[in-house]
């Protein structure tokens, strides 16, 4: 039990993938202009991350390891992630067309989001079991969603603030992201 909580806190706060490991910065900057779409993107990424972590673990443990072809893992994981994203896209289009239209181009972009490949590769590297791998993916997704939602609400307020001309747009967003990253460094002492 403490193991589960440890993994979740560690991935969501201490080793946050966006602000501490600097993975998945493309959607972090791209989809954070409106809080609604940021939340949708966060949920979609969490879903894809959890599913692809579990599926990649199964592919690795029951296909690559027994046949001694672990060198295939990067390409096999990319294939797995692409399948999960494709499946999510088709299912979401049917079940929630509104979310589908909000996410638009960003949903297929999850495929090339480095956070997903990063999580499944770290899963293998750290030799997680199935439960740990799933939790790690879920925690990474939750951390991503949390940071994205926080950042989007910040940006919504910055949009109406009196920003100096030289800092307007992406510049102030990057400065904000940097300060947020420093703030998240403060969680480093939380576990151990």
């Amino acid at each position: 039990m403490s193991d589960i909580i440890f993994i979740l806190i560690s991935t969501v706060l201490v080793n946050n993938f966006v602000l501490v490991k600097f993975l998945g910065l493309c959607p972090f900057m791209g989809v954070s202009k409106k809080a609604d779409s940021a939340l949708g993107m966060g949920l979609a990424t969490t879903f894809v991350l959890t599913l692809s972590s579990i599926l990649s673990y199964l592919v690795h443990a029951y296909l690559l390891v027994p046949f001694d072809v672990e060198f295939l893992r990067t390409v096999a994981f990319i294939l797995t992630i692409a399948t999960v994203v494709g499946f999510t896209e088709v299912a979401m289009r049917k079940l929630s067309p509104m979310l589908y239209s909000i996410l638009g181009i960003y949903l297929p972009l999850i495929t090339t989001n480095c956070i997903v490949l990063g999580v499944v590769l770290i899963n293998v590297q750290e030799q997680h079991n199935l439960l740990q791998a799933g939790l790690y993916g879920f925690g990474a997704g939750t951390g991503f969603a949390l940071v994205l939602a926080l950042f989007a609400t910040l940006r919504e307020r910055i949009a109406v603030a009196d920003v100096p001309a030289a800092f307007q747009g992406s510049a102030i967003a990057l400065v904000t992201a940097g300060i947020m990253s420093m703030a998240f460094m403060g969680f480093a002492g939380l576990v151990k």
């Binding site: 296909l63 690559l64 001694d68 060198f71 295939l72 390409v75 294939l79």
Partner: peptide, 13 residues
Amino acid sequence: IALMLFTLLALGF
């Protein structure tokens, strides 16, 4: 084996 495995995986997905 690697070739066969990957082909099967891709076909399955």
